[in-house]
Design a binder for these strands. Structure first.
Lengths: 395, 395
DNA sequence: GACGAGATTGGGAACGTTCCCAAAAGCATC
DNA sequence: GATGCTTTTGGGAACGTTCCCAATCTCGTC
């Protein structure tokens, strides 16, 4: 086969000519629709094999309006969480007959917007996105208006009516923190990273200097610790920059769960030990800040495995030990958590499954076999109890 | 703008009509080529903005023959090495104005072949691949024959004349092992994973027809695994399953470096402590096998961070400690290697840079600005000395 | 006012497919 | 042999763009 080693790849007209039929008949025989006589069908297939014919998907997409391609927009493929989710997406997409066009945004809204634009221009059949912001969502709204199927992965956007695949972040965080409380901890720290520096600077109203941004972020992060829940609001008029909207829903929800647990235990000022950094910031520094407090936390709750690593190194740097001096629970069951000593107790998310379900929901939407109402899939997390939680040190 | 919220997205004819010019003029004004009067240009741009015109890249690709899309085929996006490389690829591609179509093959040749086929059908401008096999490469050869730009990432295929981006695996491995030797070790184990189970099963001869080709490959690869160095050949006929062919070039080269170091130190039977598993196999089990030997190795060399994790857990399982009982060096500076105690000494590869260089080489090839001869980029590894290497225990 | 050079413009074709529809062929029935 | 039905076939158009080329316009010069 493929004996004719012609320069130009064979097209349907070529195959038709070789088989002695018309374009239409050849097309029907190859795509297997309409009616074709057994004889013609066979000749066409033989000709196609002989010429090494491969259908041009671009041309096909032009006509059918379908590319069989899914756009995937994530913050950071290097984060094991997203690597796992992407893996799940890739596998499920392949199984469903779709390919994956990947964009990495580094939590940067500008990049996210341009990625979405590109994906639209390339006419992907649908998009799976872990949006960098739950507030700046014009590009996502536009997507919906253009009737482009859209599934939100891991993160939610309250104002957007679309399918989502998430976990119960609030509940899982509350459960994890409750375990720390049950171990006897009263001073529990939370370290998380949320939103992009860029967006925050933009929201602050100034956008010029790149380093001023850092500075605002810092205030913001500190401010975030001030709350966001109603009761804590009335700080006075000039604290405006002290009430930053938490950018990604997961961060917000986990913080809510964190607070709820503390609240239920009758602890006040739950945000004393909360540190929210911007993406790219060193979580170790944030942790060190906590550990240097006059009354440092005796337990730490971190919202992903990379942050946990930073926290761990800050703890070591401070000459402290897990779990004797500081207990630790983190979101995400990274590969090292069960090998490192002490093994780290984690809130395990079904990362691949999250991606796979997103694909299934998206494909269902694309292929028109799903109800009008948007679907909100919430998968279970699993608390994996290991050795990083102990009672607080007795002083 | 975009006041006309029409169902069908605007096309060039729409814009032309709105601006009162012809299709051609509109196209020229938008794509900015040929000559267009300032007046016409302005009217066209105004019309485009008003209608919210977005060029259809599919149609454009049909004409230009360029999709501005790069195909990326990797074994496992969840492996931090590939996650990092993919990250580098995604970033560099975006910078160069390309998008990334991702395929995950799980080291499975069948999947790899079909991924390559799909990418060709979608007319990607070029492909970056970390091939699962350095011997079964018909699909890659076909790619070359179709003049599809191709860059090999991380792994080489000797028989294929194309650009490659790698590190000096042999040298880096030799250097690492030499360090173990210098610390006084004489029994050094190597744990690696190579090739896919599927291919091996096929190569063992049981797998139906169509694979006889594969079988010949096996003999070749086996010869290669023996070192290619004459002296070590004669092991006797029945040791065949003790000499699994390392399928991917990195595995082979690292094994070569390993043997070269032992050889230079005057040690014989360098393969006594070499364990090669198939992809998906548990590296901990392989390690345990080594540790249970009557004369177990006092140092371990692993070829990626996931294997190191497995080795580490086997060492712990055996009640041994790093580095007191067993020293460890691994390829790949995963995030946890500097946080875990003891910190693990590693051969760090410039993962993102590897991906970025692959993109640059590929884009240069695509855009025709590279010489005819294929380019072999070899990046430097860095040995990061930490705390996992100590002298062997004195008995 | 005729001429030519250069800018500007618009129509037609092309890319490779699928889809629509009308024509042709096959075949049984009256 | 004409009629009607079904199967098979092929030509034309369409998708939305870019490219080619010839036609027109502008304008300065003799």
């Amino acid at each position: 086969m493929t004996s004719h080693r012609s320069q130009r790849p064979a097209t349907i007209p070529d195959v038709a000519r070789e088989a002695g039929v018309s374009r239409s008949t050849a097309s029907r025989a190859l795509a297997d629709y309409g009616s074709v006589s057994p004889d013609a069908r066979e000749r066409v297939h033989a000709a196609a094999a002989k010429l090494g014919y491969r259908p041009n998907q671009l041309a096909r997409s032009m006509i059918t309006g379908r590319t069989h391609t899914l756009g995937v927009v994530v913050a950071d493929i290097q984060n094991p969480f997203f690597a796992g989710a992407t893996r799940g997406i890739a596998d499920a997409a392949r199984a469903a007959g779709y390919q994956v066009l990947l964009a990495n945004t580094d939590e940067d809204l500008t990049q996210e917007r341009s990625a979405v634009k590109m994906l639209r221009d390339k006419h992907v059949d649908g998009i799976i996105i872990a949006p960098a912001s739950s507030s700046s969502t014009a590009h996502l709204v536009a997507l919906r208006e253009a009737r482009c199927p859209l599934v939100l992965l891991d993160r939610e956007v309250p104002s957007l009516d679309t399918d989502t695949v998430t976990v119960d972040n609030r509940g899982a965080a509350e459960d994890a923190v409750r375990r720390l409380l049950e171990a006897g901890h009263r001073r529990i720290g939370m370290v998380t990273l949320g939103g992009s520096g860029e967006e925050r600077a933009a929201q602050e109203g100034r956008h010029g200097g790149a380093d001023r941004r850092e500075e605002t972020d810092r205030h913001r992060a500190a401010g975030r610790a001030d709350g966001g829940e109603g009761p804590q609001r009335g700080h006075g008029p000039d604290r405006r920059r002290a009430e930053p909207p938490a950018q990604v829903s997961t961060g917000v929800e986990r913080a809510e769960g964190f607070r709820a647990a503390l609240h239920a235990a009758g602890l006040k000022d739950p945000d004393t030990y909360v540190r929210v950094g911007v993406h790219g910031q060193d979580p170790a520094a944030l942790t060190t800040e906590l550990l240097r407090l006059p009354q440092p936390p005796t337990a730490l709750f971190t919202t992903d495995s990379l942050i946990a690593l930073g926290a761990l190194s800050a703890v070591q740097e401070a000459g402290l030990r897990v779990p004797d001096d500081v207990s630790l629970i983190t979101f995400d069951d990274a590969d090292w958590t069960s090998v490192i000593r002490p093994r780290v107790s984690v809130v395990a998310q079904p990362v691949q499954e999250l991606g796979a379900r997103a694909v299934r929901a998206l494909v269902a939407r694309i292929e028109g076999r799903s109800q009008a109402r948007s679907e909100h899939i919430v998968l279970d997390t699993t608390f994996v109890s290991r050795d990083s939680v102990a009672p607080p040190p007795s002083r």
